[in-house]
Amino acid sequence: MAGKILIVTGEHDSTADLMVLCLTERGVPFERFHPQDLPRDARVTLRHGPDHPPVGRMAAFGEGFDWSEIGAVWYRRPEPFSLSPALSSEEREFAYHECTSVMQGAWRSFDAFWVNHPDRIRIAESKPLQLMLARRLGFVLPRTVFTNDPDEVRALWDACGGAIVYKSMTQGVLGQSLQKSVYTNRVTAEHLARADLLDNAPGLFQEEIPKSADLRITVIGDRVFPVEIRSQSDADATVDWRRGEVPRMEHVPVDLPKPVEAACLALNRALGLHYSAIDMVATPDGGLVFLEINPSGQFGWIQSVTGLPLIETLADLLADGAARGRIDRPYDDPAGT
């Protein structure tokens, strides 16, 4: 049957586990695949030939599925491949790229309804692109500079009266141990004195927006779930709410002004996403300022603390996509199908 849901993630993914419980309870057929099992414990085979459409099979620890069974994919949070420690670093690098290539080939070769296709995710994670689209859709934006030029950072600092923040553009971790993280931070004069370090990597610098609260807007299909996170009551979380004890902060479901809600949906559509988590700031004067959109953003805790039916809504979306044979390709089909 072509109506199964495929969950692509890692072994340790509690949000995926919630989805597994939900789908099991509903009796919806699904598979779960962990790219981290590749290449030693999982087998992936893609067969192409002149007399048949592509055929794909994925199996881990002896159990698997044919791609023809899959109608929808939740591309959640896969983890890196498990390469043999017996390989040299050069061999590992080669093997890593070969594994990546075969998996990307699978994601790109077979039709399904994707939440979200990894190619869409990759594009959508570009923060300059996000800001460009958000502005065009009418969101209010903070002044933002992506640069490795110290003079540009100083100019932003002056223009904002010294109220600017630094963010990483990609991952929030640094170092092999992953015990260190980089949250959003105020940039002080002392930090600015080391702007020469931008010679070694560019950064994202943004006007600091006064907050009354943070806003987390989970968009699933055509449904929007805005939640106000009362981060300002936690001293650790005033600049970046992720730094605080998030579950202990007050979370309040709210309504968005209709134009903002419409803009959230339009931003998802523009990026080819069926799911996203949008971060905005509620200002003391009642304004809303766009910060970023996370195409693979976390949402399990929001359901946990607010009771909003996020998993159920996402399950509905996936099941509907699979049942109706919705196809979401990251390319134009030359056959026009």
Binding site: E79, P80, P85, M103, W107, I121, Q171, L178, S181, A277
Partner: peptide, 22 residues
């Protein structure tokens, strides 16, 4: 044993779990 931080390709989009708010 792999120790994890920077990903290329698919996984660079998914620094799993590190940014709780992401």
């Amino acid at each position: 044993a792999p120790t994890c931080s920077a990903y290329d390709s698919d996984q660079d989009s998914h620094p799993d779990g590190f940014k709780p708010g992401e």
